[in-house]
Design a protein around this nucleic acid. Structure first.
Length: 154
DNA sequence: GCCAACGTTGGC
DNA sequence: GCCAACGTTGGC
């Protein structure tokens, strides 16, 4: 049973276009330092799960494209690197604290689907992304929600 | 740049 | 184990 996800990224840091430009169109989703988001990657994601790639903290926040889970979960290397902004002194190689999956390009949308537009869709009113106070950078998405958003952008 | 929401930290 | 202080997220 495939799952569907939404993953947020600041396009100034790493955009959907950046993912597509990667040689293998794949990127390790490093830097997640929130336990709930980590647990989704470590425990619930399966290779092939589809992802709404969401642009946050930018001029027009919204869903920029479709990606997919391209690996099983493994330890995030940046937690071991003292020079990384994501370094975690409490993590060890024996007992890593942070995990990630690889994310790869799946397909383009014809246009970005803005947050503003998602808010106007009655069928999406219960989406976790749209609940007040939501800050999680990785969220599960219902298949119905996923299909509707992709249809809006297609 | 502001601020609401909320997760994390650390003193007790 | 409580909870105040603090830091971060992310829309506006």
């Amino acid at each position: 049973m495939a799952n569907y996800w939404l993953m947020k990224s600041e396009p100034d840091v790493f955009s959907f276009a950046d993912l597509k430009k990667r040689p293998k169109k794949t990127e390790p989703w490093n830097g997640v330092r929130n336990y709930q988001a980590r647990n989704f990657m470590r425990d619930d994601m399966k290779q092939g799960d589809l992802i709404l790639f969401y642009h946050s903290s930018c001029e027009v926040p919204g869903v920029a494209g479709v990606a997919k889970v391209a690996s099983d979960a493994y330890a995030d290397e940046t937690q071991f690197d003292p020079k990384s902004e994501y370094f975690d002194p409490k993590a060890t190689r024996e007992v890593p604290r942070w995990f990630l999956v690889d994310v790869s390009f799946e397909r383009d949308l014809k246009r970005l689907v803005p947050l503003e537009e998602l808010k106007g869709e009655p069928a999406l009113a219960t989406m976790r992304l749209l609940q007040r106070g939501n800050r999680l950078s990785i969220l599960p998405v219902a298949k119905k929600e996923f299909d509707l958003i992709v249809a809006l952008g297609s």
